[in-house]
Amino acid sequence: MTRIEASKRVKSGKSIKVEIEIGNERIKDFIISGDFFAYPLEQFEELHRKVLENGTAENVTSIINEYKNKIEFAGVNIQDLEDLILECLTKYHNTQI
């Protein structure tokens, strides 16, 4: 099991952090934290649940993409979230070499 994290602070001063635990290419744990805002909460939680239920190192970014038009972020944006996930995946792949 490999636990990876990545975080960023954006120009507005808000921050976002992603933690992913991957085992056998499947996502076992996935936490998004920070002092940002996201609306509606129900869609955010649905995204989180989908990643935990079906997420793999290969498909997690496409799951995030499904929610691009469903979640409005404030303080950070969905691109920041995507970038952090990609950063985590890059770190993960580097540990597999």
Binding site: K17, I31, I32, S33, G34, D35, F36, F37, A38, L41, A74, G75
Partner: peptide
């Protein structure tokens, strides 16, 4: 805020010493 990690944002020991409870909101920030 709803999305925050409690132990990363609050000095839990100091809050406990001061008798200050910590509650998570349903709102972000």
């Amino acid at each position: 805020g709803y999305f925050q990690k409690i132990n990363e944002v609050v000095d839990l020991d100091f809050a406990r010493e001061e008798g200050i409870p910590i509650i998570r909101r349903i709102t972000g920030g």
